[in-house]
Design a protein around this nucleic acid. Structure first.
Lengths: 174, 174
DNA sequence: GCTGAACTATCTATCGAAAGGTAGATCCGG
DNA sequence: CCGGATCTACCTTTCGATAGATAGTTCAGC
């Protein structure tokens, strides 16, 4: 992957984290990376292609990060809670898939499909890590919701308040 | 409130539920209600005014609905879980405040403030109903997240899977 | 009870800006 | 010289918003 393509994906990711699909334009991305909007089209034919690729990349990275941490800590809930905590306290504050998922009905089909894949990946991985299907559904909802609530209240520490139960040491987090 | 103003709010609410702030235009709203886009400006000077009013109305309605149901059922979690379940299984599938909250950073200030007010109202009311602050934060995150995940997976029954623990009878839901 | 000002709600028409996207030229490294 | 990458220039559409006109309604004062 070329440097410029990566730079475009980085810029798009940031803007999507802030405003979702309708919250960014090719011109803004172009200015962010220092090229012209038409050149962005060279790398990504249409807006939905760029957006779908941002989601795919985020999904792959998340999957990898979780696998890596789970190898070090056998408690899946603590691993996931910590991973999303990093997002909540990052500059962007939000996970792009969550922002897009909230307005999934208004997304181009390929983008909506990619977003769906992300959430399925999360649930499947949780089950593979030993959680029951219902437990995974509830837990995923809690950490995703914590991200949204903290973002809306403009206070990242809200994420911690909502997930204290999962960030404790060995015995407590079940 | 005039019929037309209400019709405009209804149309805007639907569109916001689907696509958030960037997901609707005055022209679409105008077509939905059968007037011209400039006439929408007569009722709401700017897009942020219309959006803020949609959020305010949703917030007031939710507050009223919860009070009414809590008077009949003393279990706050069951009351809230049931209320949001209605949204998850509605045609629109989403709570407009949740959609907007996910992209809160990209919202005009008055709108972001109104969205923030909604989530604070939820937490405050939960505490007033007897929940601890941390418990309220976690529970609110779970039901909001369940809405997002169910929407992204395009399957409303995901909401039930994530909230079964709170929809049971008297003794079980604590 | 009539008149006329003021208000409500909508229209047509239009603005400048910005959107997504395309075509064709240019530049640069292999 | 060829091909990937970027540019300039442009197109069409849509955006939020404004101006000015037009009916219909309300209502105070004579």
């Amino acid at each position: 992957m070329s440097d410029m393509k990566t730079a475009i994906l980085d810029a798009a990711e940031k803007r999507i984290q802030a405003g979702g699909f309708g919250g960014f334009s090719f011109r803004e991305i172009a200015e962010d990376v220092g090229i012209k909007s038409s050149s962005v089209h060279y790398h990504f034919p249409a807006k939905e292609d760029l957006t779908a690729e941002v989601v795919r990349r985020w999904s792959d990275r998340t999957s990898g990060n979780i696998d890596r941490e789970f190898a070090k800590d056998p408690n899946p809930k603590r691993v996931w809670a910590k991973a999303l905590r990093g997002t909540a306290f990052s500059k962007a504050h939000m996970c792009p898939c969550t922002v897009l998922g909230a307005s999934s009905q208004d997304l181009p089909k390929p983008v909506a499909a990619e977003v769906k894949r992300f959430f399925k990946m999360c649930q499947d991985k949780m089950v593979a890590q030993g959680m029951s299907a219902d437990d995974a559904a509830e837990f995923l909802s809690t950490i995703i919701g914590a991200l949204v609530v903290a973002n809306a209240l403009r206070d990242s520490t809200e994420y911690d308040r909502a997930t204290t139960a999962f960030q404790l040491d060995e015995k407590s987090a079940a």
